[in-house]
Design a protein around this nucleic acid. Sequence first.
DNA 1: TGCAAAACTGTTATGTTATAACAGGATTGT
DNA 2: ACAATCCTGTTATAACATAACAGTTTTGCA
Lengths: 165, 165
Amino acid sequence: MPTPQVASCAFSDEHNHQRCIRTALATAERLCADRRCRLTPVRKRVLELVWQSHTPLGAYQILAQLGDEGFNSAPPTVYRALEFLQEQGLVHRIASLNAFTGCCAPDRQHHGYFLICRQCGRAHELEGQPLSQALREQAARQGFMVEAETVELTGLCPHCREPLA
Amino acid sequence: MPTPQVASCAFSDEHNHQRCIRTALATAERLCADRRCRLTPVRKRVLELVWQSHTPLGAYQILAQLGDEGFNSAPPTVYRALEFLQEQGLVHRIASLNAFTGCCAPDRQHHGYFLICRQCGRAHELEGQPLSQALREQAARQGFMVEAETVELTGLCPHCREPLA
DNA sequence: TGCAAAACTGTTATGTTATAACAGGATTGT
DNA sequence: ACAATCCTGTTATAACATAACAGTTTTGCA
Ligand SMILES: [Zn+2]
Ligand SMILES: [Zn+2]
Ligand SMILES: [Zn+2]
Ligand SMILES: [Zn+2]
């Protein structure tokens, strides 16, 4: 039986996001078990907070929420949790926002490509194997060996365009 | 007669980089004159410093150099200059490095795509009309209107790969 | 079970990047 | 000359991120 997939839901109107969150956490639990790494309470809670937000969260926003809940709330706590979650492919860092968002396909090998709405702040993840191909060809022509990709497109999402049309 | 083009020279070994800098500054002067905007001394000097560096410069690195030269050296000085230069398309900000680099084709309409070497720190600008096309198609399928693109590929440049081969 | 190594967390301090807000000066067009 | 605009100086602070070291928990193995 295939893994339940969490779709990138940033621009989808009607859906039960609680379910997205539960699925994401369940997938994370399973992946960490498979990989023999530990999804500790702080790490799990950080992942949950990231998923609960409808826009990418800054480290200090996460930190503030952790503090309200009695967790330790010094910066290293949250940066360490985020580092772990990134290593496991459970969250992506969005460089142009200095913020973090849940990965919509943590059990698949991919790069995170994002459409980021400047109006509502939501970030939609594209799973971009085709893009990857085109980018790598350009790079190869220069003799460059690509190891990591940052692809972030900023603009207006379908909802935020609508009023203007 | 066409505009003299400044090539992206980050990964090219043998060239007279002083000439690159002079050309970049001359092009900037001309563009600003055409556009009736002012390439003031600080702005010009910031652009020159950015071009002089073989790797993208952080704002505070620029600031330090300005300070040594008797310019005012509080952060807003350099951030304002950089903002102007970005608006005029004379420099690009590299989000994944929090750093700035001179644009290699300021008189052409384009997005800055970068190959960034994690070893030597150099950043090579690709003028990526073809990429742009592929990216926009993906976005269009989602109903997303792209306004700005951040495309930064990190890895090893031709020179830094060589010793490993 | 007992122990050592490894992994994780707590804590303090500091480094780095970026902007807000307001005052003053230079430039431009009329 | 004057007003509007643009540019710069200055102080303060916000936002983002890591270093370094101490202590605890977990894990694997004798
Ligand atoms: Zn992802
Ligand atoms: Zn939107
Ligand atoms: Zn450019
Ligand atoms: Zn290199």
